[in-house]
Amino acid sequence: MADDRNPYVMLGIPFGAVRDVATRAFAKRARGARRQRGVAPGGVPLTELTWALNQVEENIRDPRTALHVFRVPADPWALEPRAEGVLRPGPERLSRQSGPSDESWSRLLDAARVEALHQIHQHIAAGAQLPAR
């Protein structure tokens, strides 16, 4: 007979949460249960909460291989906003490390002119005609 109870959902914690989280969640829900005549939020009796805590603390040794427990949520990433902001800062771009570019530009132009000169020399040579002998 399959057991449909999900200890993580009963405790109100994400699937795979560690013991400490489960213990805190149990304490919080148990407080609520005592105020509600032994019934925790979601209509879970205190005895069931105890069972759920025991499951998380003792029974489910490796949640990754616990294939009898429905995973809620299945993809925690999907529940978190991905937008950048002050608490999730975007990449820090390196500031400019070089000085003014005038000298580099001048050097580049000189080198470019030399290459252009070579090509214009070839152009002249291609059309050159020798004078009469």
């Binding site: 530009w105 470019a112 002119r113 090509q119």
Partner: peptide, 22 residues
């Protein structure tokens, strides 16, 4: 080359890397 602006690309790219960059 005189103005440093809108330098046309080299007719032949070979041997003209700086000209192309400029």
């Amino acid at each position: 080359f005189d103005s440093g602006r809108r330098i046309p690309p080299p007719p032949k790219a070979e041997g003209a890397a700086h000209w192309l960059a400029a």
